[in-house]
């Protein structure tokens, strides 16, 4: 917190220590779905079934799962191109997400968007944007619309440590605070902007402080701990809903895979990645806690895993068996 006094301590939702078992089990399941889905996407990419750029979310699952669980119906989500996890967390169907990755007619964008450009008007997921940082003014505009309509909804606008150095982020911060727009800026600090470590690109690496010159409060959160994420998000959403304007959550997280599928990963050591996997993995961490507190059994976790694998395999089969878009789709959806 750079301005802790500005943020009320009330409103923490039912996560944190002493969370109820169903919520924690759901977190575990949701994170595992993203993990297995992304592993499968990587596999399909390797088989040539997914083309172009494909940015996997493996390692960062606690961030979207924790934040999404704190949102209310109608709150909007927008992010950049590492977006598969966000879509699954929003409740979008894994079959149609995977179909978009394989460029099929049954994809969320009829195969015309691909991995980086996917949307769901129904689930209030506004993309899926391929230009680093461009989603930040867009998400701020969603918040503007909420304030214009006075509908009590909040825009959850995600961006990474790389995007945090784009000028339009600060143009957005300025207007969001000036007009007290209800937007939670979630900075997913996964330590690397493509191949550039944060301290090689950022004069201020404490991204939660980046709103300081606009008087936007910020908080750093352990983005590998879904309960901590959930608690911080609940508080931040309450802050926005109370009319206080924007707030920043810096999620300290880590991506295990390359920036995209074509990243050789020479900018960090194998040991570094392995150490995070072994010591800080968000899914293992929550699984161990559930077991230790005897909230689940090994068999329960195995059952969840089996169920998730089945969902993901079904999605992959659906996505590889669905037809490509009809050639007539080339010219549709350009204009209304």
């Amino acid at each position: 917190m750079n301005e802790p006094s500005k943020v009320p301590e009330t409103g923490v939702a039912n996560a944190g220590s002493g969370s109820n078992t169903p919520a924690l089990k759901q977190f575990y399941r949701d994170m595992l779905l993203i993990r297995r889905f992304e592993e499968k996407a990587g596999q399909l990419y390797g088989m040539g079934l997914i083309g172009g750029f494909c940015h996997l979310y493996i390692g960062q699952e606690a961030v979207v799962v924790g934040v999404q669980a704190a949102q209310k119906e109608g709150d909007q989500v927008i992010t950049a191109y590492r977006d598969h996890g966000h879509m699954l967390a929003c409740g979008m169907d894994p079959k149609n997400v995977m179909s978009e990755l394989t460029g099929r007619a049954s994809g969320y964008s009829k195969g015309k968007g691909g991995s980086m450009h996917m949307f769901s008007a129904e689930k209030k997921f506004y993309g899926g944007h391929g230009i680093v940082g461009a989603q930040v003014p867009l998400g701020t505009g969603l918040a503007f619309a909420n304030k214009y309509r006075n509908n009590g909804q909040v825009s959850v606008t995600y961006f990474g440590d790389g995007a945090a150095n784009q000028g339009q982020v600060y143009e957005s911060f300025n207007m969001a605070e000036l007009w007290k727009l209800p937007v939670v800026y979630v900075i997913e600090n996964n330590q690397y902007a493509m191949g550039t470590a944060v301290d090689r690109a950022s004069a201020e690496t404490h991204f939660f402080k980046r709103g300081a010159s606009f008087n936007i409060p910020g908080e750093q959160v352990d983005g590998m701990d879904v309960e901590a994420v959930h608690a911080a998000a609940a508080k931040a959403l309450d802050w926005c809903r109370a009319g206080n304007g924007p707030i920043i959550l810096e999620m300290k997280t880590y991506r295990y895979r390359g920036h995209s599928m074509s990243d050789p990963g020479k900018y960090r050591t194998r040991d570094e990645v392995q150490a995070v996997r072994e010591k800080r993995d968000p899914i293992d961490h929550l699984g161990q806690r559930l077991l230790k507190d005897k909230l689940v059994t090994e068999d329960d976790l195995k059952a969840i895993d089996k169920d998730i694998r089945s969902i993901v395999n079904t999605a992959a089969e659906f996505a590889t068996e669905s037809p490509e878009p009809d050639p007539s789709e080339l010219f549709t959806d350009v204009m209304a």
Partner: peptide, 16 residues
């Protein structure tokens, strides 16, 4: 802040 308010306007249009 042209870049910013243009993007903000586009976001508001996404929200109808």
């Amino acid at each position: 802040t042209e870049h910013g308010f243009t993007g903000l306007g586009v976001g508001a249009a996404f929200a109808d």
